[in-house]
Amino acid sequence: MPVFQAKTFRRATSASSTIGERIGAAYRNCLPRHPFLLFGLPFIAVIVAGSFALTPAAALRYERYDRKVKQLSQEEAINLGLRGPDGEEGIKRNPRRRIVGDEREEYYRLMAKDLDDWEQTRVRRFKGEPDGKL
């Protein structure tokens, strides 16, 4: 029986093997010895770089949406009471104005409600609308 050589087979380098093939072969050869350095680290780097690259795109998307929402025609502003008919500012609205005069008063009003004694009633449906009963 013939004896096999202990040397691994390596293809003879010829003119047909390009530099890319040689780099790929060297990468595949080193990958089992250093898996994180040659596979994990580049993968993590691509994920982090992609995050930084997509941040401005996401910001641009939200800025466009904000501009679209903020555009309000003169007629709509008058209808909403934000401007008067002659263009001057309408009712001054204070977003921090409290609906309820006192927080304690509202707290006690909510605590006085009986939340344990209630009855479940079905909502009336429109004609022809399924009511969900089997």
Rank of each mutant, 00 (worst) to 15 (best):
Y107N: 02
D102K: 05
I99S: 03
L37W: 07
E21T: 13
V46Q: 09
S17P: 00
R64L: 05
A6M: 05
F4H: 11
R97H: 05
T55G: 15
L72F: 14
R22C: 05
R11W: 03
S51V: 01
D114C: 13
E103N: 01
V100K: 00
R122L: 05
F52T: 00
E76R: 03
S17R: 05
G84F: 07
G84S: 11
D66C: 10
R125A: 14
G84H: 10
E103S: 02
Q5I: 04
E75P: 01
Q74P: 01
P35F: 04
A12E: 09
L31K: 11
K7H: 10
K92E: 09
P35C: 06
P95K: 15
L115Q: 12
A57C: 11
L72I: 15
V100H: 01
R67G: 10
A59Q: 12
R109H: 07
I91H: 10
D66I: 03
T8P: 15
Q71S: 15
Y108K: 00
F39T: 06
A49V: 06
A49P: 01
L134G: 08
A59I: 11
A12D: 09
R83W: 09
N29E: 12
E76P: 01
G101T: 02
Y65L: 03
V69M: 14
K68W: 14
R93D: 10
